Computed example of a mutant assay.
Amino acid sequence: MNDLKHQYENNVNIMGYFRQINNINSNSLASILYSYDLQAGSYRKDYYNKTLYYMHQNGKKIIISSKKFHGQYGSKIADIFNKLKYSSILEVGVGEATTLNDVVKNLNNKSAEIKGIDISFSRIGYGNMFLKEQGIDNVSLGVADMFKLPFEDNSFDIVYTSHCIEPNTDRAKEAINELYRVTNKWLILIEPAFDLGNEETRKHMIENAYCKDLINFINDMKLNVIQHKLFELGTYNNQAAITIIEKESKDQSSANWCCPTCKKELIESDENYFCKECSLIFPIIKGIPCLNINSAILGSKYLLL
């Protein structure tokens, strides 16, 4: 870890460093975790930054401050949600909640149940801090693996991502399957688009080993794609498409935290979550549910102690 901290402090791309030392052309889950965990705090700091950045609006380069960009970006996502019927929302890859914050502020349904998950504990910690600063108190964040989400099937009316699938070079289809499993009505993906982005975007995606075939996987899976187009606002050299997928499900489940292994609802006891089915204890640290399989402790007699 000390070596990775040193590399990060010297502005080395951590996922690129992993690819180099392992002589591979894809990003491992470990490289993604370490990369984002080391970055924790930078997104919250950048939100308040008055520095101007090159972004795009409908493909054209613009210059805009980070805070103004996030405000407009979250508002545009919320506008899409507000055209749909929803009572629950999940953001997968929520990071420090800098996108979710402005989405929530612009939602028409103020009573919607809203959750967010991220693989990085540190980022979720900063996310909770950021939401508190912003006066948002109706959101629950937890640590989880996007490939083993701690929710039942059909748990959320809207499941969405914002640049979450992108680093998972070879696992896009697996990610879509899991995201689609937990949505009840709508899966909305805002992810870099090799097919629709500019030349800088395609170059950026190749250099960073981002997933380039997302829409092809979706089409191969024969999902009901309602819309696939360039999202109107975003990073100039990492332009994203918005892909809206409709799912018709008759059986909606609760949006409560569940065991990521068996998908049974968890028991909260002594500031931990316990899965009676799997006999696994999932810790709650600093108020953050840690629902990654690797965080679990076997304790078959937990409730008897």
Results as ranks from 00 to 15, higher is better:
Asn177Met: 12
Tyr180Val: 06
Cys164Asp: 05
Leu196Gln: 10
Asp170Cys: 10
Arg171Cys: 06
Tyr180His: 09
Ala175Gln: 08
Phe194Ala: 02
Asn208Glu: 02
Trp186Gln: 05
Glu200Pro: 04
Lys203Phe: 08
Asn168Phe: 14
Pro192Ala: 07
Lys185Tyr: 05
Ile206Phe: 06
Ile188His: 01
Glu178Arg: 10
Lys203Asn: 12
Thr183Asp: 08
Arg171Ala: 11
Lys203Thr: 13
Glu174Pro: 09
Val182Leu: 10
Arg202Leu: 01
Asn198Phe: 03
Glu199Thr: 14
Asp170Glu: 15
His163Asn: 15
Cys164Ile: 04
Val159Ala: 01
Trp186Cys: 01
Ala209His: 10
Ile188Thr: 03
Leu187Cys: 09
Ala209Ser: 14
Glu199Gln: 15
Ile206Met: 07
Val159Asp: 01
His204Tyr: 15
His163Phe: 15
Glu174Lys: 09
Asn208Cys: 02
Glu166Asp: 05
Thr161Ile: 09
Arg171Trp: 11
Ala175Gly: 11
Asn184Cys: 09
Asn184Ser: 11
Trp186Lys: 06
Ala209Thr: 01
Tyr160Lys: 03
Ile158Lys: 05
Lys203Tyr: 07
His163Asp: 14
Leu179Cys: 01
Tyr160Cys: 02
Val182Met: 08
Val159Asn: 00
Pro167Lys: 04
Arg181Thr: 06
Val159Leu: 02
Glu174Gly: 08
Asn168Trp: 11
Tyr160Ala: 00
Thr183Phe: 07
His204Leu: 15
Lys185Leu: 12
Asn177Ala: 15
Ile176Ser: 01
Glu174Ile: 06
Ala175Phe: 09
Ser162Thr: 15
Ala193Met: 04
Asn177Cys: 14
Thr183Glu: 12
Glu207Trp: 11
Tyr180Cys: 10
Lys203Met: 08
Ile165Ser: 01
Thr169Cys: 00
Val182His: 07
Ala209Val: 04
Ala172Cys: 05
Leu179Tyr: 02
Asp195Arg: 14
Asp170Ala: 10
Asp170His: 13
Ile158Cys: 06
Ile206His: 06
Asn208His: 12
Glu207Gln: 12
Ile176Cys: 02
Lys173Arg: 12
Ile206Thr: 13
Trp186Glu: 02
Cys164Phe: 07
Glu166His: 08
Glu207Arg: 13
Cys164Glu: 12
Asp195Leu: 09
Phe194Ser: 03
Thr161Cys: 08
Leu196Asn: 04
Ala175Tyr: 06
Glu166Pro: 06
Ile188Ala: 06
Tyr160Pro: 02
Ile188Cys: 03
Thr183Trp: 04
Asn198Gly: 05
Glu178Trp: 08
Asp170Arg: 13
Lys173Cys: 08
Lys185Met: 10
Ser162Gln: 11
Tyr160Asp: 02
Ile188Val: 05
Gly197His: 07
Asn208Asp: 04
Arg171Glu: 07
Thr183His: 10
Ile206Glu: 09
Glu199Ile: 15
Ile190Pro: 05
Glu174Cys: 06
Val159Ile: 02
Glu191Gly: 02
Ala172Asp: 00
Ile165Arg: 00
Thr169Gly: 00
Lys185Cys: 11
Tyr180Asp: 09
Ser162Met: 05
Lys185Asn: 14
Ile176Thr: 02
Asn168Met: 10
Leu187Arg: 08
Leu179Val: 02
Leu179Arg: 01
Asp170Lys: 13
Ala209Ile: 08
Phe194Cys: 00
Glu166Leu: 04
Ile176Phe: 04
Glu174Met: 12
His204Gly: 10
Ile165Val: 06
Asn168Glu: 13
Arg202Thr: 03
Glu174Asn: 14
